[in-house]
Amino acid sequence: MTATTGNPPLLETRGLTMRFGGVVAVDDVSFSLREVELRCVIGPNGAGKSTFFKCLTGQLKPSAGTISFRGASIAGIGSSAIARRGVGIKTQVPNVFDGLSARENVWMAAVRVAPGRLAEKRTDEAMERVGIATIGDRTVGQLAHGQRQLVELAMVIAPEPDLILLDEPAAGMTDEEVDRLVGLIRELNRSHALVVVEHDMQFIRRIAKTVTVFHQGAVLVEGDVADILSNEQVRDVYLGKQAA
């Protein structure tokens, strides 16, 4: 999908390729995301979407091609440097400090970009938005997996990034936590761009607007969620019997 003429994309890749020896995990992918756009990235296991996510987030340095955020290259500069430019990153496995309280974790994320009282304010706001204000004093290492996911999500949004990248955010959550996450993603999308990589198709149906489908390392098809989920090619390579 190309950006609207006159409005440069917020995030863009061109010819993005990631090779591991003779294996091409991401193959010549061109991808464009507008300001305040929500994009879901789906595909079968081994399709290349997780490798694509790791390239976007600086966990991997691409073999070829470009990645730009607001027109500046971010390819291979590392996750911390990308985050400092205004990108919030949530990986599959919660990246939290088990020995600290939930609130201390979120505050540490907020204070990187906001001083003193502003960091406190952003911490409180992020925890309230995610729905974890009541467990702020609990040690993260003692929390259930879904609660840890929510703590990390609060850490991601506390610095108020322009772009949020989420890798399987619903994994391990209870139905109630997923409901809260759906509402939160919709609310965040009013003022933030998001890229969500996810396996759970029920979750995708609830949040998606535009969907990019990966297959064999390349973009198979891209478009409106309703069109994508009724696409025969997508059913064949990804949904299979579930769609039928």
Rank of each mutant, 00 (worst) to 15 (best):
L188D: 01
D137L: 07
T174C: 05
V197N: 10
L194Y: 06
E160M: 11
R190W: 01
T174E: 09
H199N: 11
V151T: 09
A193K: 05
I207W: 03
L165M: 13
E198F: 02
R206H: 09
L153I: 14
L188Y: 14
A171N: 10
D179Q: 15
L188C: 11
E187C: 06
M201N: 08
A154I: 01
A171D: 13
I135S: 06
E198V: 05
L188W: 07
L163N: 07
G172F: 10
V156R: 02
R205T: 11
R205L: 12
L150Y: 02
M201Q: 10
I157W: 07
G172S: 13
D137C: 05
E152S: 04
V178G: 03
L153E: 08
L194C: 12
V151Q: 04
G136T: 00
R148K: 15
I157S: 09
D179R: 15
V195I: 14
G141L: 13
E177Y: 12
A158M: 03
E187D: 15
D200T: 00
H145A: 14
M173F: 02
I185K: 04
H145M: 13
V151Y: 01
E168I: 07
I204W: 05
I185C: 05
I185P: 02
D179C: 12
N189D: 14
H145Y: 15
R138Q: 13
R138W: 01
I207S: 08
V182I: 15
L150E: 02
I135G: 10
V178K: 01
P161N: 05
Q142L: 15
M201F: 12
G141N: 07
V178S: 00
D137H: 08
E198K: 00
F203P: 01
D200F: 00
E176I: 12
E176F: 09
D200K: 04
V182A: 10
Q147K: 11
L181F: 10
V197Y: 05
L150A: 04
S191Q: 12
L188T: 06
M155W: 03
L181H: 09
H145N: 13
Q142T: 15
H192R: 14
